[in-house]
């Protein structure tokens, strides 16, 4: 029961993040959604790590890597958001469609 519960929890986090990424027009809100999805994945790792792993250090290290990458991604994303905002004075993704086919 407990493992499934944790997995459903991580899935819920991921789905909420997915909703934010798909629904929101604000770039920062989308970034929040992405962070939620990453955390959902981290919870997933640690849940399996706690219940089924013979070598529990591996799962924790994986999550550490995820956190590190999330930090890098957030830094880049925020700087891009700032640049976008400076160049067009808005951070609405609906306007960011210059690359459409």
């Amino acid at each position: 029961m407990m493992l499934t519960g944790w997995l459903l929890f991580s899935l819920a986090l991921f789905s909420i993040g997915l909703y934010a990424v798909l629904a929101r027009r604000n770039l920062i809100a989308i970034l929040i959604g992405i962070e939620l999805m990453l955390n959902g994945a981290s919870v997933n790792f640690l849940a399996f790590n706690a219940y089924l792993s013979k070598d529990p250090a591996v799962g924790q290290i994986a999550v550490l890597f995820v956190i590190g990458l999330a930090a890098a991604e957030a830094a880049i994303a925020l700087s891009i958001i700032l640049a976008v905002y400076r160049s067009r004075n808005a951070i609405d993704v609906a306007g960011l469609d210059e690359l459409k086919g």
Partner: peptide, 23 residues
């Protein structure tokens, strides 16, 4: 806190430091 419950206090600490404190 959930990480803590999942027996990973170091990861929980990193979560707090990097996510809450940084991002």
């Amino acid at each position: 806190l959930a990480f803590l419950i999942l027996k990973s206090p170091f990861v929980a600490a990193m979560e707090v430091l990097i996510y809450i404190g940084g991002i």
